[in-house]
């Protein structure tokens, strides 16, 4: 579904502090599977996720989504693809403080211009499914870490994306909450969604829910 060919990504290119975060990545990510990127800090996992999820463009190389080359598309089209194809769960959850859980879930769908009632019903059903119906009007800063992550998952799903991307999803969770998260991932995968995540947590990468583990070090893929 997603093919990466000779992906390289530089930061501060041409400056004295130039840094190559990714250095020649060739990878094919299968649809409807759970793929995990594993590696130490600074190995390039997050950078690779940003390129896969159209949050950033590679410095060189090609990204193909369902056979279409999207690496050279202008920002506007990339945003369109990002909004309709990918849902993101960030390490720090990145919820908007001061807004309710429900408002946060609805946010990614605002630019689509979907009718308000339909959007609200969809968001409420997602919160209900993630056992947060009773907290939907609560401001997100009042929620626990686990609840915040479930709000972040609901937000990632509001536009019904085919691919869910999670960056270090269990980094801020205890073991019980981490297991709960993996359970949610499994159910989403069972619905036919592709899940791509980065982690160095053995609980995640060694989970039975993960179909494929990609190991990384120094911006390159390594063989295990």
């Amino acid at each position: 579904m997603i093919e990466l060919t000779q992906i390289r990504k530089a930061f501060n290119q041409g400056q004295p502090n130039e840094f190559w975060a990714l250095n020649g990545i060739d990878l094919a990510i299968e649809a409807k599977k759970v793929t995990a990127f594993r590696g130490p800090s600074g190995s390039g996992k997050t950078t690779l996720l940003t390129i896969v999820g159209c949050l950033a463009r590679p410095t060189s190389g090609r990204v193909k989504l369902a056979g279409d080359d999207i690496s050279g598309l202008p920002e506007r089209f990339l945003t369109d693809i990002r909004r309709s194809t990918f849902g993101f769960v960030f390490q720090q959850f990145n919820l908007i403080k001061g807004l309710s859980a429900l408002d946060n879930v609805m946010l990614p769908a605002f630019p689509t211009g979907r009718p308000h009632r339909e959007l609200r019903e969809r968001s409420e059903s997602l919160l209900d499914r993630l056992k947060l119906a009773h907290r939907r009007e609560a401001r997100v800063e009042w929620l626990s870490g686990g609840e915040q992550q479930r709000v972040a998952i609901a937000r990632a799903l509001v536009n019904d994306p085919k691919v869910l991307i999670a960056d270090e999803p269990t980094a801020n969770l205890d073991t019980a909450l981490s297991r709960e998260f993996m359970g949610i991932l499994e159910s989403l995968n069972a619905e036919g969604r592709t899940v791509i995540l980065s982690s160095h947590d053995p609980l995640v990468v060694e989970s039975a829910a993960v179909d494929c583990v990609v190991s990384m070090r120094d911006g390159q893929l390594t063989r295990d």
């Binding site: 403080k97 001061g98 807004l99 408002d103 609805m106 946010l107 769908a109 605002f110 630019p111 689509t112 211009g113 979907r114 009718p115 308000h116 959007l119």
Partner: peptide, 22 residues
């Protein structure tokens, strides 16, 4: 046209919520 109006409505909703937050 409806989608455009809905979008503006969403933006205004979010704007009002933002104003209230600060």
């Amino acid at each position: 046209m409806n989608a455009w109006i809905e979008k503006q409505r969403h933006l205004i909703d979010f704007t009002l919520a933002s104003l209230a937050r600060r």
